[in-house]
Design a protein around this nucleic acid. Structure first.
Length: 258
DNA sequence: ATGACGGTGTGGCACCGA
């Protein structure tokens, strides 16, 4: 089984690239973030023609998440139970597999702007709420994958400049503690189950030749539950779409299981 | 570095992202 996550930074702009990428990478599940469009503008029929079912949670201008799946999706849940949020950041769904149901939680984590800002405070509250949500989901769905744009570089090696950016956004101790708290629920960062090239990143700033200089961050992640972990055979970042003429600033991350 | 680059909106620029 192949599962991927990709922050597309506007699906309206990136749809042709998504369709091309799915032809080259016929994954079972593709989780998208930053759709930047409302549900009525989601290209449901086009993706259906490509063979994919969709569960969508859109929003005008900002945020928006979707799960694309070759197999039908059930028990779709939007955002976090008991956490009133005007922003569309979380969509979960269940997909049947030969080994039993798999719960998929696709998230676009809060950016947070800067420590001390209102947006950072929102990020912390959102992370608290997400932790409780994932804990509850795990209790009923032992086979679970939590993936998306986490907006956290978990360790120094996940940043192009860990010293210069120490305690700045994506690098703060608080954000990293929240990431570890998710791991403490029994989740594993699938990317770190395998030997990886040094300076592996999933996002690069559009400015200042960020990608060409590999000045990036690894902030897009795929976390797998204990039941799923022994099934994981590979996890990698696909840098190819970042080389497209009009790229997203994020690259897809891919997971393979037996 | 109040910069850069790219997307969206009802715009002539501001706001946001990371």
């Amino acid at each position: 089984m192949k599962i991927a996550t990709w922050n597309v930074n506007s699906l309206a702009v990136r749809l042709p690239q998504v369709l091309d990428w799915l032809i080259a990478n016929p994954v079972d599940l593709l989780c998208l973030q930053e759709l930047k469009l409302t549900d009525d503008k989601f290209p449901l029929e086009v993706l259906q023609s490509a063979g994919y079912h969709s569960a969508v949670f859109g929003q005008k201008t900002y945020n928006g998440v979707a799960i694309l799946s070759l197999a039908p999706l059930s028990d779709v849940a939007r955002n976090i139970t008991g956490f009133d949020d005007p922003q569309s950041r979380v969509i979960a769904a269940t997909v049947r597999t030969p080994d039993g149901p798999l719960r998929v939680i696709n998230c676009y984590f809060v950016n947070g702007q800067a420590p001390g800002s209102d947006k950072f405070a929102y990020k912390m509250k959102w992370l608290d709420a997400l932790h409780a949500q994932v804990q509850a989901e795990l209790a009923t769905h032992p086979r679970l994958v939590l993936l998306g744009d986490f907006n956290v570089a978990p360790e120094d090696r996940d940043s192009f400049d860990p010293e210069g950016l120490r305690e700045t956004i994506h690098h703060t101790s608080e954000e990293r503690a929240h990431f570890r708290a998710l791991l403490d629920l029994g989740l594993t960062d699938a990317f770190r189950m395998f030997e990886q090239p040094e300076k592996s990143f999933s996002w690069w700033d559009y400015r200042m030749l960020g990608f060409q200089k590999n000045r990036g961050l690894r902030i897009d992640h795929i976390l797998v539950s204990e039941a799923l972990r022994p099934r994981v055979t590979a996890c990698r970042i696909d840098r190819a779409p970042r080389k497209n003429p009009q790229p997203s600033d994020h690259a897809p991350v891919l997971l393979e299981t037996i």
